[in-house]
Design a protein around this nucleic acid. Structure first.
Lengths: 237, 237
DNA sequence: GCCCAAACTTGATCTGGGTCAAGTGGCTTT
DNA sequence: AAAGCCACTTGACCCAGATCAAGTTTGGGC
């Protein structure tokens, strides 16, 4: 919430050693280009609940998530919130047409990002079609996820929503942590509710029910998936 | 539903005379490129309820909508349907990462598309970054719409959903028909329901209620927006 | 260790929108 | 012009999930 941004040495970090080197937009670049990119990005740290950018803010930067988890959300005038996604390391944020961010983003736990000023980064893309192609690829991937999520929001029951969420969240963590039935959930129950179009009570009850049914075990800071096959069946897809 | 595709002379139509020339991907191309593009695309006509492509089909073509309206949807195994969008003239369909379509598309009424075989079109994009930039722009625009729709599906009431839909559909038609309070609705009530995450009965009842309240008038094949300001207020945005 | 606040769970009740079941009316067909 | 069909509407009833209201657990500060 508060804007106490801690900035590190602009060039204290090197792209070639970057943890997300292979999965982010940067994977499209060769060693020489990476060295140029180093001068465009600066590493910025955000702590729990700090806002990285807000909906309707004029876009002045793009962000590459390096570490941590962010919630991306839109608010209705009366305060209802829809989380449109969670951003993980490797995700690239800030692309838009209008020149304004079309959702807000804040840190869940502590987050590190690589921040690129819009104008110089835009110029950098200009004559690097391979980078543009990579950005386009990420946009299309997100669009695919967004459509999948529309199905969930519009047509699935509470239990299906929760089961689907747990499975797809586990899946998203595979590139980061490797495959595991222990699924950390850094976001709050309220966040999960706002992502799934439910209330916090329904999410809580559904977790409890899944635990009673032996599908999951609720553990500190996450869940353990006891019966993946059953969860898959409940997810109905 | 049936695949009785009518194909016209491949070169019987000319890009430079194309009705969507300015609004589609092609707007990124100059006259010389347009002449080249003519050899890649062929005009294909679909009639009511014909399927243009299905989810999970291997993508062999991209499509540029020339005329008519299409419904884009995903199905759950048990038949529940979520319409993820309606495509209008100028929309470009078929981009994906997996090599398979991630939704199905069929014609609402009669539809004309410009079909491009994937491989040659992919090669055509290859060395035309300006075209890639245009495609990226369209993808980002769609992503923005998708997120807006998630808010609708997850957090809005039936009445808000219907009011929002009518207003945004009217807005989408402006580039085609000019601004008007007479809003044609070529899609069925069932389509609207599946787009808004409601049942057909709820859509029907909500239309009736909006009419009773003097916000709209239900006319043949659409509605007339009597009180745009009130509709805007009901849309809660 | 104790207190407090925040996050989460649980229970009781309510309700918006779903489900089920008839209508109704406008095209098409013959 | 009668029949039939299909899209849509309307009514009666129901239920999944929301709302309201306590608990309970967890963690952090002192």
């Amino acid at each position: 919430m508060k804007p106490s941004v801690v900035t590190f040495e602009p060039n204290g970090n090197f792209c070639k050693d970057c943890s997300i080197r292979g999965s982010s937009v940067c994977s499209a670049l060769d060693a020489a280009e990476l060295r140029q990119l180093e001068h465009l990005g600066r590493r910025v740290q955000f702590s729990t609940c700090e806002t990285v950018f807000s909906e309707e803010d004029i876009t002045t930067s793009y962000f590459n998530v390096l570490d941590g988890v962010m919630r991306l959300y839109k608010l209705l005038p009366d305060g209802r919130r829809q989380i449109v996604g969670f951003a993980l390391p490797g995700d690239f944020l800030g692309m838009n047409i209008s020149g304004r961010h079309n959702f807000s983003a804040d840190a869940i736990g502590s987050v590190a990002v690589c921040q690129f000023a819009k104008v110089p980064f835009g110029r950098f893309i200009e004559d690097r079609p391979h980078l543009l192609r990579r950005i386009n690829e990420l946009a299309i991937r997100e669009l695919t996820q967004a459509r999948e999520h529309m199905v969930l929001l519009g047509r699935r029951s509470a239990e299906e929503k929760v089961a689907t969420f747990l499975l797809s969240w586990r899946e998203r963590l595979v590139p980061l942590n490797g495959p595991s039935n222990t699924v950390p959930l850094p976001m709050s129950r309220q966040d999960i509710a706002d992502y799934l179009g439910l209330t916090i009570e329904t999410v809580s009850r559904t977790f409890t029910k899944l635990e009673r049914d032996g599908v999951i075990e609720i553990i500190h800071g996450g869940i353990s998936l006891l019966d993946p096959a059953r969860a898959e069946a409940l997810a109905a897809a």
